[in-house]
Every structure is written in structure tokens, then in C-alpha cells.
Nucleic acid binder design. Sequence first.
DNA 1: GGGAAATAGTTGGACGTCCAACTATTTGAG
DNA 2: CTCAAATAGTTGGACGTCCAACTATTTCCC
Lengths: 165, 165
Amino acid sequence: MSLRFDPIAEAGRNWTEHDWSQTDAMLAATSITRAYQIMLARINDALAPLGLNFSRFEVLTLLSFTRAGELPMGKIGDRLQVHATSVTNTVDRLVEAGLVERVQHPTDGRTTLARLRPEGHSLVRKGQAALSEIDFGLIGLETSAQRSIYNTLTSFRQANGDFSE
Amino acid sequence: MSLRFDPIAEAGRNWTEHDWSQTDAMLAATSITRAYQIMLARINDALAPLGLNFSRFEVLTLLSFTRAGELPMGKIGDRLQVHATSVTNTVDRLVEAGLVERVQHPTDGRTTLARLRPEGHSLVRKGQAALSEIDFGLIGLETSAQRSIYNTLTSFRQANGDFSE
DNA sequence: GGGAAATAGTTGGACGTCCAACTATTTGAG
DNA sequence: CTCAAATAGTTGGACGTCCAACTATTTCCC
């Protein structure tokens, strides 16, 4: 299944050979893409026995960190930085699974709250344990490397307007 | 649109506060996810005027690096590390766009070759130029940081069996 | 206080990726 | 030589994400 050589390194050699520029950026972009795929697959494999995937786990976690265990749909999207439609979809699944319920906002008729149900609260702990066990899909990365990646990518995100501080 | 604080850093604070483990891995995983989304969106924006996206560009590039400008479908999947069905889908689009053609393998009746047409050959250069101009979506990352990420993620990929060398 | 503009959320459609199942061809063990 | 197993590719279905368009509600400004 896996190649006996690194196809990304091979692409780098071809890139250089053809005098194409920005080889470093190409290699970084390709590595990030592939590492992301590997990491996400491992995370989803670990969550699958719980009936969760990474998106659903993130929503549950976010809700579990709030005082009342509830948040407007829009705020969920802001925090997780995904589109409103993705939140709608994810919350649909969580509602189907009985982990979350939709509640009308007490004062603003436009707003819908997603509220954690007790089932969701207990499942989020299991998910957290499952992901800790596999190091969030990052087994093979030293803690120092994890920190280094976090720091580097945080400045990248900030430079790209992901947040202002 | 963008928050005035970093939601990932905020998640890290919550994580620590609740005594959940593997905070470093969580932060790295979340950063990789978000950085990947930003990078991919920039890449696809740059390629959209050419009628391409990153997957299609990768296939064209790979073909352009071969002697005959052709490769079996399966080899494309191996090199780009995507499933056979994704290759079928991507090549379908490239054929529709007149950039690639499907050809029977001369000796093995099972195999289909994707062959670059002249239109594809000229477009791949434009795509390469477009992506170089935006640093493969990685503007905001120094070259040294790009190299560091590449090196770190390459060892991660190897540790996860992405290739053996 | 009335109506345009902004905000919140959902729906439907497109796309890309994955999986399972399928067809067709080739390989290889006996 | 033959037939089961392996290989190559496609199809159909599920899922997640995105966008454009839409409904409903609230805000704001004159």
C-alpha cells in the first residue's frame, strides 16, 4: 500500500529539476495536506466507536466548556471557524444521536441554541479519553514538535486574518 | 468575521482548566486543521480562474513530470495518495475540460492511462505560476518555517507508514 | 414608529473524498 | 491448462463542507 519512497520528496526533486519556483512552499503545502489527512483519519477512527467524528466531537467539547452547556448556532460556527451550514448539519447529527437538543433563544427569536444533553456530556469525556490515547492522531510527533508546529501555525493564522489580538 | 481572540488558544485554556490531558497534541491538531483550511482556500482561489482546483492541478503536474505525459490511473493515486475513486473523479473533470484524455494501456487490458493533452500542458504552467505567486497559500510563513514544517511533518508521515525508505 | 438593512438560521445544490460492491482482465498455483 | 485469486478501474451511496438563495426576526435611523 505504502510506497518505498516519499512521493513528496520526489515531487520536490522534479520541481527543482524543472526550475519551478517556490519549492519550499510547495513542499510545506503538500506535507500539511498529507499530514492533515493522516491525522484526521486517525482521529475519526478513534471516535467512530462512539458514533462521533472530529466535527461532532468539537461541537460537543465546545458546549461542555460553557456554563449552561448551550450556545447559539452562530457562535459555534465562529469558535470552530466553520460555516453556518456545517454547524446546522453537525448539530442535526448530534440531535439525531440524542446528544444535543435545539432550544429557542429566550429573548431573540432569530436565534437557536444548541444545548448539551446529559448523554452528550458523558460522551464528550469518552471522546476526550479516546483522543488523548492516540495523541490526537499525532503519534510520532514529539511534544516539542507539537508545540513548535502550534506556534508556527498560530502566527501563520494570525498573518492571514484568522483572528486579531 | 474574524474573532478578536484566538479560539484555539481559548480552547487550550479551557482544556487545561478542566485537567484534560494532551493539550499540546490538541493544540497542534487543531492548528493543523485550521491552517490547512486557510491554505487550501487560498490555493483554490488562485486556481479557480484557470478552472482548476488543487487536486486537478496535482494530477496535471504529476503527468507533466513524466516522459510521455501519461500514467496509469492507479499510479496517480499512489503518488498523490488519494483513493482510486478520487482519481476517477478528478480525471473525469480534466477530461471534460479537454486537458487530459483516457487511453487504453497497450498491453494490459485492465489498465487505463491518463494522458496529458497539449491544452493541459500549457495550463499546468499557468497553474504553477499562479501558485508560486501566492506562495502556495503560505504567505505569512518564512521560508525557514516552511522548511521546518516540511521536515517535521515528513518524519511524522514516515512514522505513520506513509512511505518506507 | 415604520421600513430598509442587518442578523440568524435553514435549505438545496455542487463538489471532493471515502467505502463497498461490481465488472473486466491478468496472474499463478497445481 | 485451468480456474481461483489478485489487480485495475468504475459506479453508487454516504458524508462533510461550501455557496447562493431564502425565511424570519431584530436593529436602526429618519
